[in-house]
Design a protein around this nucleic acid. Structure first.
Length: 198
DNA sequence: TCTACGATCTTT
DNA sequence: AAGATCGTAGAT
């Protein structure tokens, strides 16, 4: 399948998040099917890294869309985001989980190789599997080479629920069901707090 | 400079 | 239930 064009990302993060489910992340021999995502939206989302304005860390998140925003969490996890919306909005989709399709022999986690069914459920594991670090900030995902996102068949049924680890946000945004996941798939974290979505 | 704190993961 | 582990942001 072809790479997703830049215009795919140039709309609201929640819409992009929904349509990213089932798409393919590729880096070299490694291919991962996206199974769980979170939208960090423009317009006052108090969980969004851009909520307090532009900083050196979040620079890539302000656009242009279709590029990577990677940041370090808890000092050790490399978190992959795909930048969305128009330039200057400060929005992105966090990749929370993925199903390994190819490159199993190359995929690594913090503990070593791919050795169990629970792996790649959690954003830190996705970043490790793709060997990412903050130097991937601004990397264009719609161009050939390095890290790419490929088109694939749409997902039939989607689950949704509140985002994980954002208790610092306002109650409205803590509750917002902006975490989306592929239904009936084992590569999804925090299943208990997900439910059916229209 | 100093300090507090994570869009987490693992082990206990 | 809590420790690991360190870059970032905001305060000083």
């Amino acid at each position: 399948m072809a790479r997703l064009p830049q215009r795919f990302y140039r709309r609201d993060a929640l819409d992009v998040a929904r349509d990213l489910l089932g798409k393919i992340l590729r880096r070299g021999p490694v291919r991962l099917r996206i199974t769980e995502v979170e939208a960090y939206r423009h317009g006052g989302d108090t969980a969004n890294h851009c909520r307090a304005g532009r900083t050196p860390r979040n620079a890539a998140m302000w656009g242009p869309p279709g590029r990577a925003y990677v940041y370090v969490c808890y000092g050790l996890h490399q978190m992959l985001n795909l930048v969305t919306d128009e330039d200057g909005q400060g929005a992105a989709v966090l990749i929370r989980a993925a199903e390994p399709l190819a490159g199993h022999d190359v995929i690594r986690t913090r503990r070593g190789g791919l050795d169990g069914p629970a792996l790649l459920t959690g954003p830190g594991k996705v970043g490790a599997a793709l060997g990412l670090d903050t130097s991937f900030c601004h990397h264009p995902l719609y161009r050939a080479g390095g890290l790419e996102v490929l088109d694939a068949a749409p997902v039939a049924q989607v689950l949704c629920g509140p985002r994980i680890g954002i208790d610092y946000a306002t109650p409205e945004h803590v509750r917002a069901p902006w975490r989306l996941a592929v239904a009936d798939n084992r590569w999804v974290s925090h299943r208990k707090t997900l439910s059916a979505r229209a």
